[in-house]
Amino acid sequence: MRQDPADTPLVTVMDNLDASGYRSQFQARDGGLILCFTCRVEFAAARAEADLIFRLEGASDVADMVTVVPLTCPVCGAAGTLVLHSGPDASPEEAEVLSHLERSQPSEGEAALRPMVEHALDESATDALAPRHNRRSGAQA
Rank of each mutant, 00 (worst) to 15 (best):
G77Q: 09
R55T: 07
V13G: 03
N134E: 10
L35I: 10
D15C: 00
A50I: 07
P106V: 08
N16E: 04
G109I: 04
R40C: 11
A45R: 04
A59N: 03
S104Q: 14
T38F: 08
D89M: 11
S124I: 01
L17D: 01
H85A: 13
D4N: 15
G109Q: 02
T8K: 14
F37E: 12
S137E: 13
N134P: 00
L56W: 05
E123A: 15
F54L: 01
G31P: 07
L121S: 03
M65F: 02
F54T: 00
E110G: 11
A90R: 04
S137W: 01
D30I: 11
A6W: 05
C73Y: 04
L113F: 09
A45V: 02
L113H: 13
E42Y: 00
H133P: 15
T67G: 07
P9K: 04
N16Y: 04
L129M: 11
L121P: 01
L129R: 09
D51M: 01
D15N: 12
E49S: 13
L71G: 02
A48R: 04
L56E: 03
G87A: 04
E57W: 03
A45Q: 06
Q105L: 15
D51E: 09
T126H: 15
P9N: 02
C73H: 10
V66H: 06
S124A: 14
S24T: 06
S99Q: 13
A141Y: 12
A120Y: 11
F37T: 13
L17K: 00
F54G: 01
S107M: 07
